[in-house]
Amino acid sequence: MSTLAPPRPSPRTTASAGLRGPARLVVRQHRRAFQLLILLTALTAAGLVAVALWAGHDADVFARTGCRVDTVTTDACTRSTRAYDDSQYRLNHSLSVVALLTAVLSAAYGAFMAGPALARELESGTHRLAWTQSVSPARWLTAKLAVPAALTVACTLVLTTVCTWFSTRGTLHPLYWHDTSVYGTTGVYPFAQALCGLALGTLAGLLLRRAFAAMALAAAAQGIAVHVLQNVRGHLWPVVHGPYALARSNPFPRDAWMTEVGYLTGTGERLPMGTCFPIRGKFGDCLDSLGVTRRYADYHPKSHYWPLQLVESGILLAVAALAVYAAHRLLRRLHA
């Protein structure tokens, strides 16, 4: 009796199965860390939703009292206004905490890649087992980076979606688009920040191959990159220059991000806003002696939100791409 031999898998099928193998191994190796990230994301999103709903309930209760924030006439209105103000403060403070958590997580992603995911494995030599199972060093590194990147993008998407909805809930103390708590948790910037942390952590892990040293280097590099970009953010897109009369109040939109204010002389020279402040009683004479004719303000309107986001995110992604390229080149040089 003859039997039919099973069909030989095609090269395409074998390659596909091989590509799934390293990724599955990464998930099994670091499943606890991945589960912790998912849990932290879910708890943060649920906490934001709970705070927003709580603040919305307090706002509805305050509206039914008939009291006004700017006019408090009775003790009952005083208590209601205080409760309403406290709930609105919690609303703003919660998003500030999440913005800080987002920045910390981006550094934690890099530290995870630098330490447990790469440096510890290179330090102990366990990576050689994967390389003897028909997995090349390049594919091994790609799987090490791709799996955490996919999970990071998914978790960041959940957080940014909730934060975008959350940032529109305040009424008493509205949040503006240029506030760090809004800018750092909405748009595409959080994605670029997280992926940059992963890429820098990958390079640090391959460079040092010592877990704690690589984790410290990755966190420091990510912190420096984010800090530098935050300081130059206002210069990443051309500002709008708006001169206005000395006697006129600020004519610009309330949500505009002012980057520079001061005085203009008749020749167009710019003077700082505090030029004549130390002089008491002769403020007008001081301005006249300097030839000041107008005030000016350089600002970003709300329409600059996306240009600034895209430029800053593009810089972070370019740094991430360079770090990944350098990591692959380094791996190829060390383990040809």
Rank of each mutant, 00 (worst) to 15 (best):
L105R: 15
G115E: 10
A318D: 09
F166D: 00
D298P: 05
D75S: 13
G56S: 02
L95Q: 15
V319F: 12
V61W: 10
D179H: 12
V261C: 08
L91S: 07
L172S: 01
L317F: 09
S2Y: 02
H173R: 13
M113K: 09
R64Y: 06
K282W: 06
W140M: 02
G125C: 05
A218D: 02
P7M: 02
L4Y: 09
E121H: 04
P238T: 00
V153A: 06
R280L: 07
F62T: 03
A130F: 10
F283I: 04
Y244G: 03
L39D: 00
H235L: 14
P301I: 06
G21P: 00
S124K: 12
T161F: 10
V153T: 07
D60L: 02
L271Y: 08
S16N: 12
L122Q: 04
R120P: 01
V226W: 03
P307S: 12
R209Q: 06
L195Y: 00
L151Y: 00
V311G: 10
P301C: 08
R329Y: 03
T171I: 09
L310R: 12
S2T: 12
A119Y: 00
L43I: 11
H241I: 05
Y183F: 15
A83W: 10
R270P: 07
P6T: 11
E121Y: 08
V232P: 03
F212R: 09
L195H: 05
A138D: 06
R270L: 12
